[in-house]
Simulated assay, not measured.
Amino acid sequence: MAEGNDDKDQKTQEPTQKKLDDALKKGDVAKSQDLVTWFLLSAGTLVVVVFAAGAAGGLALPLKNLIGNADLVQVDRTGLMGLLMSLVLAVVLALGLPFLALFLAGVAGNMVQHRLVFSAESMKPKASKISPVAGFKRIFGKDALVNFLKGLAKISLMGIVIAAVLWPQRSVIDSLVRMDVTMLLPFTHGVIVQILVAVMAILTIIAIGDYVYQYQRWYNRQRMSMQELKEEFKQTDGNPEIKAKVRQIRRERSRKRMMANVPNATVVITNPTHYAVALKYEPGMDAPLCVAKGMDAIALKIREVATANGVPIVENVALARALHAGVELDAEIPEDHYRAVAEVIGYVMRLKGGLN
Rank of each mutant, 00 (worst) to 15 (best):
Q13S: 07
Q17A: 13
K18L: 04
L20Y: 03
A23W: 06
G27V: 10
V29N: 09
A30I: 07
K31A: 09
S32W: 01
S32F: 05
V36H: 03
T37H: 10
L40S: 08
S42M: 15
L46K: 06
V48H: 07
V48P: 01
V49N: 13
V49K: 05
F51E: 14
A52C: 14
A53G: 14
L61T: 11
L63D: 00
I67E: 00
D71S: 12
D71H: 11
V73P: 08
R77A: 14
L87G: 00
L87N: 00
V88R: 11
P98R: 04
F99M: 13
L102G: 12
L102T: 03
L104A: 15
G106D: 09
V107T: 05
A108C: 08
N110K: 15
N110P: 05
H114S: 10
R115W: 12
V117G: 06
V117T: 10
F118V: 15
A127W: 14
S128P: 11
V133H: 08
A134F: 04
F136P: 07
F136Y: 14
D143T: 04
L145N: 05
F148N: 07
L149C: 10
A153I: 05
S156F: 10
G159S: 11
A163S: 14
A164D: 06
L166I: 11
W167V: 12
W167S: 15
S175D: 07
L176G: 05
R178L: 11
M179G: 00
M179T: 09
P186T: 04
F187V: 13
T188W: 07
H189K: 11
V193P: 07
I195A: 14
L196S: 13
V197R: 11
T204Y: 01
T204F: 14
I208W: 04
G209Q: 04
D210K: 11
D210R: 10
V212W: 12
V212T: 09
Y213R: 12
R217H: 09
R217C: 02
Y219Q: 10
Q222L: 14
R223L: 07
S225E: 06
Q227Y: 02
F233S: 14
Q235Y: 10
D237C: 09
A244P: 01
R247H: 14
R247M: 03
Q248E: 14
Q248D: 04
Q248W: 00
E252I: 01
M259A: 02
V268R: 06
N271I: 06
H274P: 06
H274A: 12
H274R: 10
A276D: 05
A278Q: 00
Y281H: 12
M285G: 01
M285D: 08
P288V: 06
D296L: 03
A297R: 04
A297L: 13
A299V: 08
E304M: 06
V305F: 02
V311R: 07
R321N: 03
L323G: 06
G326P: 04
V327K: 05
V327R: 01
A331T: 01
I333M: 05
A342W: 05
V348K: 13
L351H: 12
L351T: 08
K352W: 02
